[in-house]
Design a protein around this nucleic acid. Structure first.
Lengths: 178, 178
DNA sequence: TACTGCATGTAAGTCGTTACATGATTTG
DNA sequence: CAAATCATGTAACGACTTACATGCAGTA
């Protein structure tokens, strides 16, 4: 059992999913290519942590369900120590060397980042709207954790956008002084 | 040349560093174990992108400098397309399944996260103070990119702390309703 | 009917983690 | 003078990326 396997099992607590869906849900706080997800799901199935149901209409679809054994192992994992988050951000490495770049390059980098963050923000706001529209209290409760995580993402996107704005102003000031 | 190699070269733009220092500077936006850093530096040296100077007092220390060739390749890399940031955060996977956890577990997770973020915030505020204390304009200019990146980290830490606070309130409300 | 998105899978090669290994320097 | 931190390195193993490969479903 590696970390990705536990993450996949966590995703299945809320509802049964296909591998394809898992990849998308995961994106809120994890990264994995489909090749990795499908091989991990195959292992989890072999070891009995998940079960598969074949969709009748879409015969190619495999809907994975969490088994009792799977839920137990998730519960144990949650009690274990939580590893610190890891991040890799090329953009910040480029910003780090701003002093050897020209104004247009730095501004271009910041512009692209802003576009990316705006896109992310919009996507997450849509996800939130979907949760807000749930009327069934049971469904709403099942989505509580997801709701918290999406809210966090939205807040951080907004803060990053404010930082981009501020950074642009700093760049302007620096090149004015030169 | 992989991404880590470019990141290392970027770090050396500001000032010559040892592998040990690089690991610490990197932490602002990248993660790498020392084993990876030392082997990458050895490759960069062999290919002439960096040069080594041995510290006279501390003979075990190897201070890496960026060569002209290294600076050129960094400049080319910066013009290339920037890969999107990647993140891996176990904590959020655990929060995601909040609905099957008890109140104390969720609150405990949030508490630990808060402690971690407070530590990070403090560390970065110290880094900022160091930059603020620079008086030489040239030194200050060289640290411009670093300044931007540290500011971003501080802002995001603060936002995450606000989110933790908010999330605790949400948890209280949920368990009140139950 | 062509194109985009949905959906799954395998294999080779690269990257990253963990463990092993050593030794100097600083601080209480 | 013991412990923590600084400082560097190698090797084995596991995780991740990239490329190859296939086919269905919806829509313009």
């Amino acid at each position: 059992m590696n970390t990705l396997s536990y993450i996949l099992l966590c995703m299945l607590v809320r509802k049964p999913c296909t591998g394809y869906e898992l990849k998308q849900y995961l994106a809120l706080f994890w990264e994995a290519h489909h090749s990795q997800i499908y091989t991990s799901l195959a292992k989890l199935l072999k070891e009995g942590y998940v079960s598969v149901e074949n969709d009748e209409k879409h015969t190619q679809k495999k809907i994975y369900h969490l088994t009792k054994k799977g839920e137990n192992i998730v519960n144990n994992w949650i009690q274990e120590e939580t590893k610190e988050p890891s991040q890799k951000d090329e953009f910040l490495a480029k910003i780090y060397v701003a002093s050897i770049l020209d104004k247009d390059t730095v501004k271009g980098l910041l512009f692209e980042r802003k576009q990316h963050q705006l896109k992310l923000l919009k996507q997450n706001q849509e996800k939130q709207t979907q949760i807000d529209q749930l009327t069934d209290p049971k469904e709403k409760q099942k989505n509580f954790g997801r709701f918290l995580v999406i809210q966090r993402k939205i807040r951080i996107c907004e803060e990053e956008l404010r930082w981009c704005q501020w950074a642009e102003e700093q760049v302007d000031q620096l090149f004015l002084a030169k």
